[in-house]
Design a protein around this nucleic acid. Structure first.
Length: 270
DNA sequence: CGCTGACCCTGACGGC
DNA sequence: TGCCGTCAGGGTCAGC
């Protein structure tokens, strides 16, 4: 269920259990993820001390002296701390067992996630073409404006492209375009510099508050049901097609854009 | 290079 | 109750 806030919340939730801890064993019950779990992954990581848990876009990186574990939660993945004595349930594909006795359990019904291994210093192709982090200083309206010149695809697809900026998933793409008053189907190359400034600020604002919300709601990271934090927050358009626009009182419309459900207000977004 | 659509997989839900 | 189509918050990849 991860958009960037979930992934960041996962990182913050599991890091205290991992940092400085040695991996006792990696137990792979189901290797058929987005890409097969490398056959040697378990032996590569066994015995290694996790020195850092970082996030790049929606990827998590567990760094050790021997290399890094690269994890993506896909569409339906989650990673949480469990008691290793607890029997794995359906779709509990992988356990990262730590010497401390803690266990990180990876659950992913749709198996769109991945567990991969990076040698020290190796730049993985999955990471090498990623755009800036939306919450970093280098990301802003100017970046979006520059990259978008001449582009004819919809601005919504543009901001969801991880080569442009990472971490803007479907829910937040809908939300930030509404907040910015931009029609999702407008050609990316035909959005002004000023409006990209507004859009970039909204991306930062919404993702920041969602990370804080996620951190609050997922405080019971150990064991809890992990209800996504942003469900608690007010959504302006996502999941509200046919309902009343909070800006003008008109009805929100739904279209499909790049196979993704898109909700917007024809009056407030141009 | 940029854009579009197919595809990866399981589960939930609505209509009949 | 069951069957069928559609949809779901991720991303890659081939083909034009």
């Amino acid at each position: 269920m991860p958009e960037l806030p979930e992934v960041e919340t996962t990182r913050r939730g599991v890091a205290p259990y991992c940092l400085g801890e040695a991996v006792q064993a990696l137990v792979v019950r189901e290797p058929r993820l987005r890409w097969p779990v490398p056959p040697r992954l378990a032996e590569q990581i066994a015995g290694q001390v996790i020195e850092a848990v970082n996030r790049r876009g929606k990827y998590l990186l567990f760094s050790t002296a021997a290399g890094s574990l690269l994890v993506h939660l896909g569409m339906s993945g989650s990673l949480r701390v469990v008691d290793p004595a607890q029997a794995p349930g359906k779709h509990d594909h992988i356990d990262i067992r730590l010497r401390s006795g803690a266990c990180l359990r990876y659950h992913d019904p749709r198996r769109f996630g991945c567990f991969l291994w990076l040698e020290p210093g190796e730049q993985h192709p999955l990471l090498s073409h990623l755009g800036p982090e939306p919450l970093d200083g280098e990301f802003g309206g100017d970046h979006l404006y520059r990259l978008s010149r001449g582009r004819t695809s919809a601005v919504k697809s543009f901001i969801m492209d991880s080569k442009v900026v990472v971490g803007v998933g479907n829910i937040y793409a809908n939300e930030v375009l509404f907040l910015s008053g931009i029609h999702p189907r407008r050609a990316a190359g035909r959005v002004s510099q000023a409006r990209y400034g507004v859009l970039a600020n909204n991306i930062k604002r919404v993702l920041t508050s969602a990370v804080e919300l996620g951190g609050t709601t997922l405080r019971d990271f150990v064991g809890g049901d992990g209800k996504p934090g942003y469900f608690a927050q007010q959504l302006y358009v996502y999941g509200r097609a046919g309902e009343v626009c909070k800006g003008c009182g008109g009805l929100l419309r739904e279209i499909r854009l790049g196979q993704r459900t898109t909700v917007f207000c024809v009056t407030c977004q141009r």
